[in-house]
């Protein structure tokens, strides 16, 4: 479904991503793990056209998307939940969700999808009229994921969904991520918490200094001594 070939990304004057190649099949959940500064976020931001790629190709459902204008990505079916959540703090929870469905115009099914997001995150429905800036970090992460789902994406890109959250909130968020994945959504998950990411995904890629150094089934990677030493703290 997604074919990334030789992707290079420059960020802040350095080559953050140095020609990586990977793919994701329809319905798959794939983890991209690596240390801080390995190029995970740059990769995701390039996929979502938040950053320009310096080279390589990104094909989504067979179409080259690496030169599309940034606002066109969501119409193609790609939704990014950005690092740090990126909710609109001075808009209400409902308005944030409606923004998620912006690309769908006046589709009457939007209301059903809001109900669906509330099904995933009942907390959001309690806070529907509250300004997003007043939510806790975990609630904002729920909102960011819910907002991304509102575009009915074909591919969901999750950037560090556990970052800065209490362990109990991380559990809750990942329960929903699993539920979304179980519904057939294709997901690319970027996480520093490698154990959690690999336990949730089917396959994984290990990114080191902008290059993919290891790939395989998530269970294999979890058992790999190198991965265990470098990312699982063993």
């Amino acid at each position: 479904m997604l074919e990334v070939t030789g992707l290079r990304v420059n960020y802040g004057g350095i080559q953050a991503v140095r020609g990586i190649t990977f793919h994701i099949a329809e319905g798959e959940m794939v983890a991209l793990i690596g240390a801080n500064g390995a190029g995970k976020t740059s990769t995701l931001r390039a996929l979502a056209r938040q950053l320009d790629a310096a080279g390589g190709s990104v094909r989504y459902r067979g179409k080259e998307i690496s030169a599309l204008p940034p606002h066109a990505l969501v119409t193609e079916g790609i939704a990014l939940v950005p690092e740090g959540r990126g909710v609109f703090p001075r808009m209400t929870v409902v308005e944030n969700l409606l923004m998620g469905a912006y690309s769908r115009g006046r589709d009457p099914a939007i209301a059903d999808d809001i109900a669906r997001v509330y099904g995933f995150f009942p907390r959001l429905s309690e806070r529907a009229q509250q300004l997003a800036g007043t939510l806790s970090g975990g609630e904002q992460q729920m909102l960011a994921i819910g907002r991304a789902l509102m575009s009915r994406p074909g591919l969901l890109l999750l950037d560090e969904p556990s970052m800065g959250l209490a362990p109990i909130m991380v559990q809750k968020i990942f329960e929903v991520i699993r539920a979304v994945a179980a519904s057939g959504m294709t997901i690319l998950l970027v996480e520093q918490n490698a154990r959690l990411a690999l336990a949730t995904s089917q396959r994984g890629y290990v990114l080191e200094s902008g290059e993919i150094t290891l790939t395989g089934e998530a269970a294999e990677l979890l058992a790999n001594p190198g991965v265990r030493a470098a990312y699982l703290g063993e």
């Binding site: 979502a48 938040q50 204008p69 940034p70 606002h71 066109a72 990505l73 969501v74 119409t75 939704a79 990014l80 950005p82 990126g86 609109f88 703090p89 001075r90 808009m91 308005e95 409606l98 923004m99 998620g100 912006y102 690309s103 115009g105 006046r106 907002r147 575009s151």
Partner: peptide, 24 residues
């Protein structure tokens, strides 16, 4: 309105508004 929401979203965070499909 939907347009007004897009305006407010752009004012708050243009990069994220773009992610939502807003043509800045």
């Amino acid at each position: 309105t939907r347009l007004g929401r897009a305006m407010r979203a752009t004012a708050e965070n243009p990069a994220i508004a773009q992610l939502m499909g807003v043509d800045i």
